[in-house]
Design a protein around this nucleic acid. Structure first.
Lengths: 230, 230, 230, 230
DNA sequence: TATGAATGAGGCTTCATTCAT
DNA sequence: TATGAATGAAGCCTCATTCAT
């Protein structure tokens, strides 16, 4: 997604080469920090944002106090985990707003957002409601809202999006779909494309003869995705 | 039309008049059982399937041990709570399959299902993945799948539903939307209608000029629904 | 001290014989409650109001969750432990205010208060500052202040107490002395009488030829009392 | 008059010019040591003898391991912090013993001691019991005892101090009052003078018409001093 | 050497489950 | 039988102390 690091949206990435910032961290500490973020990403994706921090620490192979040294509370960890996603989403939003056709922009944008969420280099997707104070998640939400609202209004002016749809409709629908992403991750990581396409088709004024992308989930995959998590 | 009680789908409802079953319970025991199921329904709907069982017992005004006497584990309770919904869903499915137009049937069916979930006499909706082994929920899923698949195929034969959609598409989308119901309950209990309508519009071959039902969520409502849970 | 139980000041003693109140507790639960209060009294007295609640539970021979069942937080426990002391102090205050000579009243009152604190049937004495929210301790403080202020003013009007002393002087001095009581408990439980007598002698207008009460601490006792606690 | 440094009472002050001791430290090491002692003094005074050592290190701007390098355990740090106070106390004691009137000497001495405790160049005052093995505090106590005993006996011989008072009485009383100093520090740093004056008035044989020094605590100040520590 | 980092133990609190009455 | 009570395990978090750089 976002090839270049945008400093403005990367509030915590204390890169070691910043001259005026805090002194460069120790090698092993950085390694541990990485391990923790990875473990947290996995855990958040697999078990939701409310997993046991102790378990995250164990997963990362460090003591729980080490986790707390790096991240004074759950929110700080959440923020860190999702900060790269924030970058991606802002980038995708800016790009979409620059496109002539709002419809194309919206389509591209939503695909980009969903693609950014649950990948190994992206950030995973928060399962369920998130704990208060996680400012990165809130920023993501705010940015997403800004972009979606702008594109929607523009599309309605251009006549490609049904006039009775609201930003809230789209935001709610994408949030709901987004929450299902973790369940897809291991089984069918791109399966979100089809419901998204259905949603978009339902949203436009003059549906062209669109084709649903990616193959459908199989029955077994659906079972895996929906039935009791662990 | 399966108006009559189907034993096969009522695995635990030890009705007092079953001849071969356990002996008829004392009046107060039955009363307690009822209270527990009610309390559990409310609690599951309000706080998700992982609420404290202690709190459910207190809500019901009985001791926690009484809860365990009636339901040996959480799953048994979950099953019982959702068993009535199962009946509703089966009924709605049978009714839908009897309709000429599969499209009309499907539409009616889905609205009926969602309407059945979060009501006081229905069952509420499980928030998030459920604990292992909850058989009633699985049965609901099986029945739902049967109905949806049948209607979908029929609609495609009748030319009203896009041919590239699969049952899995629809099942996944409705499951995902269903998981968002609890969050809507207190704020906007019918807000699911609009995303459902969008989905259906995206699903049909020749979209008539449909109108989205119910007013949209407001921005504030959306925030309440999506932002940090309490 | 207060021979008869005064209901008004005994907010938590849910005696089993109250008809309209909560149902009588189970025998063993009451026993556990007693054990916990005893253990807490000892622990508070010996190690201050900030001891580990876990240790109190262990001392009482119950699981820590049992402690929390009986007392939802530290303050509730503190309140319970010191509620009987509150009764004593109020009683002593009322009695002192009824005496003609404010000087006699004050003397008797202070001796009574200190006697009520660190005894086996009294309540022990909070070592150091107490955690917020312990309303019984605050009530004790309020009552004590009321009584001391009244007696002091009266004594000054009667000419027996030096006019430049304030209620705050006396309250501060007694609080400071009170905080030393736990250290005395095991070694010389009445040793507070002599500093109290000195204080009172310093407080009166025409010091009669008073004698200090009780034998003085010995050198060894003083060491035990002052040197590193445990 | 012990104006000069007395080695016997300075067990840990590894001055750089001691011949037989450890080799002279590097300049920055000495600096760090100073910083640590300062930080510890502040922290002990403000938060009691049980503050987090980590916080002391951070306050001093050094790593926690540096603290441990300089002071192998908490007690060593406590000792060092209070060693300068020890000097003050010895000095004041010697001066007092040289005065003709034991009463005057005692009075001056006690005021000097209390004045020495909570100042920036003095040492602050340990709040509550101190951790085992803090030898400087013990030395302080020994010296204090020596002085108080001598003055008391002398005063009793001179007829100015009541004959039934013992050194232990006075030592206990002053210790108890001393423990309250930290609480006074921020609110009313000289408020100890009034209870001390009361005590002394209670102690002398023919009380002259003394006046209590400093204004009394106000009600609000008393509350701040006594009520729940944050 | 001085440091930041790591850690294990311990305190607090809640909860699912079992037990004594 | 139904109950309130008890419990142990687990999560959160902090701190004294030790370790690797």
């Amino acid at each position: 997604m976002s090839g270049t690091q945008q400093p403005a949206v990367c509030p915590r990435s204390w890169a070691a080469d910043r001259p005026g910032g805090p002194p460069p961290r120790r090698r092993d500490a950085l390694r541990n920090r990485e391990l923790l973020v990875e473990a947290a990403r996995d855990a958040f994706t697999a078990e939701g944002l409310h997993t046991s921090l102790d378990r995250i620490a164990r997963r990362a192979g460090v003591g729980s106090a080490t986790l707390y040294r790096h991240f004074p509370n759950r929110e700080a960890l959440v923020d860190e985990v999702y900060s790269s996603t924030l970058t991606d989403i802002i980038t995708a939003g800016d790009r979409a707003l620059a496109v002539q056709s709002a419809w194309t922009g919206l389509t591209n944008y939503l695909y980009a957002v969903f693609a950014a969420l649950p990948t190994e280099r992206g950030a995973g997707c928060p399962a369920g409601p998130w704990p208060g104070g996680a400012t990165t998640l809130e920023l993501i939400h705010v940015q997403h809202r800004r972009t979606v609202n702008a594109l929607l209004r523009q599309g309605q002016r251009q006549g490609t999006i049904r006039p009775d749809a609201t930003g809230e409709d789209l935001l709610f629908a994408t949030a709901v779909l987004g929450r299902a992403l973790p369940a897809l991750l291991t089984t069918a990581p791109t399966a979100w494309r089809r419901p998204l396409a259905l949603l978009l088709d339902g949203l436009r004024t003059h549906p062209a003869a669109s084709r649903l992308p990616t193959p459908s989930l199989t029955t077994d995959e659906l079972d895996k995705v929906l039935l009791p998590a662990r």
